[in-house]
Simulated scan of single mutants.
Amino acid sequence: MGIVNATPDSFSDGGLFEDPDAGLDHALRLVGQGADILDIGGESSRPGAEPVSEADEIARVVPLITQVRARTSFPISIDTVKPAVARAAMAAGASIWNDITALSAPGALETAADLGCDVILMHMQGEPRTMQAAPHYDDVVAEVCAFLVARADAAKAVGVARERIWLDPGIGFGKTLEHNLALLAALDQVVALGFPVLLGASRKSFLAKLDPAAKAPAHRLGGSLAAALAGASAGVTAVRVHDVAETVQALRVWEAVKRT
Rank of each mutant, 00 (worst) to 15 (best):
V149I: 11
V140F: 00
D138E: 07
V119Y: 01
G159Q: 13
M122S: 11
V140E: 00
R151P: 09
V141K: 04
M131I: 12
F147A: 01
A155S: 15
V140P: 02
G126C: 03
A154S: 05
R151Y: 03
R129D: 15
M131V: 05
A134P: 01
T130C: 08
E127P: 10
V144P: 02
M122N: 05
V144Y: 00
P128K: 14
A142E: 15
C117F: 07
C145K: 14
H136K: 12
A161G: 12
R162G: 08
A157F: 10
D118F: 14
P128A: 03
R151D: 00
D153L: 06
A161M: 12
V119M: 12
E127H: 09
A152K: 11
C117I: 14
V158L: 13
D118M: 15
M122E: 04
Q125I: 08
E143L: 04
E127I: 13
P135L: 12
A152D: 02
A155T: 02
A154V: 04
V158P: 13
A150H: 04
A146K: 12
A154W: 09
A134C: 11
P135S: 08
A134L: 15
H136G: 07
G126Q: 06
A155N: 01
V141A: 04
A146Q: 15
A133P: 05
D139V: 03
D139T: 02
K156Y: 14
E143W: 02
R162S: 12
A150C: 09
M124Y: 00
C117H: 14
A157N: 04
A152M: 07
Q125A: 13
M131S: 03
I120K: 03
Q132H: 08
E127M: 06
A146P: 10
A142H: 02
V160G: 08
Y137G: 00
I120L: 07
E127F: 12
A150Q: 09
E163M: 10
L148Q: 15
D118N: 09
M131G: 08
H123R: 02
V144A: 00
R162T: 12
C145G: 13
Q132N: 04
A152R: 10
A161Q: 08
V140S: 02
A155E: 12
Y137I: 01
A146L: 07
M122A: 05
Y137T: 01
D138F: 06
R151K: 08
E163C: 06
F147T: 04
I120E: 03
M124Q: 00
V158M: 15
A157W: 03
Q125C: 10
C117R: 07
M131C: 10
A146M: 08
A142M: 07
M122V: 04
L121I: 11
R129M: 07
H123M: 01
R162D: 13
A146E: 13
V149F: 14
G126T: 07
H123V: 02
D138K: 11
Y137A: 01
P128S: 01
M122C: 08
A157K: 13
C117M: 09
E163H: 13
A161T: 11
P128D: 03
L148S: 06
A142T: 05
D153T: 10
A142Y: 01
G159K: 09
A150W: 07
A157Y: 05
Y137M: 01
V119D: 04
V158T: 07
D153P: 10
Q125S: 04
V158I: 06
A161P: 03
A133N: 13
R151T: 06
H136N: 15
